[in-house]
C-alpha cells in the first residue's frame, strides 16, 4: 500500500503537469487567432514593422473594420454564411440521427451494407465529385442559390454524423424503447422524445465537427454560388486579397469578425455537451 499522502501529492504533481501541457497547447493553438485579433486594429505599417506587437495608442487604427463594414455587402455575406451553416447543420443532425437510429434499431436485409455505404463518404472527399455536382446544380437551376450549398454541405456532413451517432444510438436502452412501444408511442415519438435527448452529447460533438468546415469552406461557394447575392463570408473576404495588393487591414478585420459566430455556436453546443454528461441518463 502506498502512503495516501504521498500518493495524493503524486496526483497533484500529475494534475499540475497535465495542466501545464494543456495550457501550453491552448496558448500555441490560440496564438495565431490572437495575432489576427491584435493586428486587425493596427495601422498597415505597424502590421508589417512589428506583427507581434500589441496595438498602442499610436499604432491603433480601426480602418480595416471600417473598410469591411462599408465596402462590399459584408452583412449580407455574413447572413448567407449563417443561413447556410445553420440550415445544413440542422439537416445533418436530423437526417444523421434518423439514419443512425434506423441502422442501430431495426434488423432488415442489407442493414450492414447500408451502414457501410453511408460511411463511405468519410473516406471519399465530396470535392472529387465537384464537376458532377456542378452539372446537377446547373440542370436543377440551383446555381447561385444558397440551397445548392445547403444540399452539398448536408451530403458532406452526413457520413460522419451517421457513423458516430449510430454507435451512440446502439447504447440507448432497448428496454426503454420497448417500454415506450408497449405504452403505444410511435417510432417517431420514440426517436424524438426518448432516443434524441439521450444522445444529445454526441449530437453536440457531431455539430461542432460538422459546423467548422462548412463555415470555413471556400471551394463550393466559389463554384456553386459566386454571385454577389449568395456570397458567403469566406468568399466575400477574398475581394480584399488582390493579385498585386492585399488590403491586410480589411482581411484581418473580416477574419476577426468571422470568428465570433463560430465561437458563439460552439459555446451553445459545448454547454449541451457538458449538461448531457453531468445529467446522465437513467439506466
Amino acid at each position: 500500500m502506498s502512503n495516501p499522502i504521498t500518493s495524493a501529492r503524486g496526483n497533484l504533481g500529475r494534475t499540475a503537469a497535465a495542466h501545464v501541457i494543456l495550457i501550453a497547447y491552448t496558448i500555441l493553438a490560440l496564438y495565431p487567432v490572437f495575432l489576427i485579433l491584435i493586428n486587425s486594429v493596427k495601422q498597415r505599417r505597424a502590421i508589417f514593422n512589428d506583427p507581434l506587437a500589441l496595438p498602442t495608442a499610436e499604432t491603433f487604427d480601426p480602418i480595416g473594420f471600417q473598410t469591411v463594414l462599408e465596402q462590399g455587402n459584408f452583412l449580407l455575406y455574413f447572413q448567407n454564411s449563417m443561413i447556410v451553416t445553420v440550415v445544413s447543420l440542422f439537416f445533418v443532425l436530423l437526417f444523421g440521427a434518423m439514419a443512425a437510429f434506423a441502422l442501430a434499431e431495426y434488423r432488415f436485409r442489407g442493414n450492414l451494407l447500408m451502414g457501410l455505404y453511408l460511411a463511405l463518404g468519410i473516406m471519399i472527399p465530396i470535392r472529387l465529385g465537384t464537376v458532377a455536382i456542378l452539372e446537377i446544380m446547373v440542370a436543377a437551376g440551383l446555381v447561385n442559390t444558397l440551397t445548392s450549398l445547403v444540399l452539398v454541405y448536408t451530403a458532406q456532413g452526413l457520413p460522419l454524423a451517421v457513423f458516430i451517432l449510430q454507435e451512440f444510438m446502439r447504447q440507448v436502452s432497448d428496454d426503454l424503447k420497448n417500454a415506450a412501444r408497449i405504452d403505444g408511442l410511435s417510432e417517431y415519438r420514440i426517436f424524438f422524445t426518448i432516443a434524441l435527448p439521450l444522445v444529445r452529447p454526441a449530437m453536440a460533438t457531431v455539430a461542432v465537427f460538422t459546423m467548422i468546415p462548412i463555415w470555413n469552406d471556400l471551394w463550393f461557394p466559389l463554384i456553386l454560388a459566386p454571385g454577389e447575392a449568395t456570397k458567403t463570408l469566406t468568399l466575400g473576404s477574398q475581394i480584399f486579397l488582390g493579385q498585386y495588393v492585399t488590403d491586410w487591414n480589411a482581411v484581418l478585420a473580416a477574419l476577426s469578425l468571422a470568428i465570433f459566430p463560430v465561437v458563439v455556436l460552439y459555446l451553445i453546443f459545448s454547454r449541451q455537451l457538458i449538461r448531457g454528461i453531468t445529467k446522465g441518463a437513467v439506466k
Binding site: S173, D175, L176, N178, A179, A180, R181, I182, D183, G184, T193, I194, P197, L198, A281, V282, K283
Partner: peptide
C-alpha cells in the same frame, strides 16, 4: 400496445 399487456423490465426502463 394493443395486446392489453404490461411489462416490467429488469432495468426498470423508466422515461428519464
Amino acid at each position: 400496445s394493443q395486446r392489453e399487456i404490461a411489462m416490467v423490465f429488469q432495468s426498470y426502463a423508466l422515461y428519464p
